[in-house]
Amino acid sequence: MKITDIKTRFIDIYMFVEVHTDEGIIGLGEAGSWAFLEAAAAAVETFKRYLIGQDPLLREHHWQYLYRCYHFRGAAIMAALSAIDIALWDIAGKYYGVPCYQLMGGKCRDKARVYYHVYGGSRQELIDGCIRAKEAGFTAVGHLTPFADEPRDKSWFKTFASRIDDGIESVRQYREAVGNDVDLCIEIHRQLTVPEAVALGRGIEAYRPYFFEDPVKPDNFDEMAEVAASIPIAIATGERIHTLQEFVMLLSRHACRFIRPDVCMCGGLTHAKKIAALAEAFGVQVIPHNPLSPVSTAACIQLAAAIPNFAIQEYPIGEDRPPKSGIVKSALTLEDGFLVIPDTPGIGVELQPDAEKEFPYIPREYKTRLQSDGSVFDQ
């Protein structure tokens, strides 16, 4: 079997990669570089010059060849490599007639717990989202900020004291709204300094958050480790890093209790499986990052099935996006807050033939929020 073509498909806000073979098997993957999908598409075209004519089943060899050939790294390149790698795993599963997790040692579980995305421009909207999630049968809610999802064109300012007190009060009300039947996955979006993160982390301890995600910027692992050593709740981080070596540095500093590799950014299933094994050695659990399409979800579930230290899966529904059925034909089934592990060969999803026409590409708006003094604010 040989690779005959590689195509990129832009649908809505997503970019997909299809790897075609001379046996008619087509593999599907997704790139996770968010606002830089065009750059990832250019990297796919570069990788394509090597891949055409190659045996698609040599996944590890191709991964090493593409990653190490010219020694350049970065999010766009890794997103392209991730999408191609997922597509090659999809081909392998279809070729052998098994789900990808069977090629990774078989499944460790029959279903994967997921958490529901909650959005809102006010505290009440976020509370209402938590309640809806509970009513829908979810046992965890995430993407849940203590500070509300305010528009990026609104300037920002709060005093230290008011910000911390407001954040603590929000988490208290989330807990009051859902009781102990729903875990709260508190998302900070890298917005805090170390003193702010420590103050907020200590303040929300009483409300038993499942994890405290990305309290500070991920560029400095020592800062994350300082926060982790200073608060009693579990930190989750890792969505913005994408190499095995970066995850080693994060884990060796004991900077988190949950790692969040993005399968569509960290090198696909090949690399994500290795990152999960590293985390296992440190007693750290894995929560795959997944703000993308059902293709990303399907790839994440293959990883979730195959690793012993899987904790919970991010499951993005509820946003103002096209219905999942309009983008893909999927084998995934949601039951009482869990995705059933499918037995479909490959990753278990296919793109709808007319998805590009139905949902034309929408480049993400490039806008960052500013503080009241005109400086940049992380959101």
Rank of each mutant, 00 (worst) to 15 (best):
G137W: 06
Y96N: 07
I84V: 08
F138Q: 07
W156C: 01
M78S: 09
V118P: 04
G120K: 08
L88P: 01
V171D: 02
D128S: 11
G105S: 07
I84K: 00
A83Y: 10
L81G: 03
L88N: 00
Y115W: 13
L126H: 04
E169P: 01
L144N: 01
S122K: 08
A148I: 08
R175G: 09
G121F: 09
G106C: 02
K158V: 09
Q173T: 08
Y96H: 15
G93D: 00
S122E: 06
E176F: 10
Y95L: 10
T145L: 03
R163P: 11
K111P: 07
Y115P: 14
D85Y: 06
F157Q: 10
R163H: 15
V98W: 04
A177L: 01
S155D: 15
A161T: 14
T139D: 12
A148P: 04
K111F: 06
R175M: 06
S122C: 07
P99S: 07
R132D: 14
L88V: 08
G142P: 04
A161G: 06
A140R: 02
F157P: 02
D90R: 07
A112Q: 00
D166W: 03
V118W: 02
F157M: 11
D165S: 13
S155N: 14
C130N: 05
S170T: 11
E169N: 05
Q173M: 14
P99G: 05
S82G: 09
G105L: 04
E135N: 12
C108E: 13
D153Q: 14
L103T: 00
I127W: 04
G129W: 01
P146Q: 03
G105N: 08
G105H: 07
G142S: 03
K134L: 09
H143K: 06
I127M: 02
R132T: 12
E135D: 11
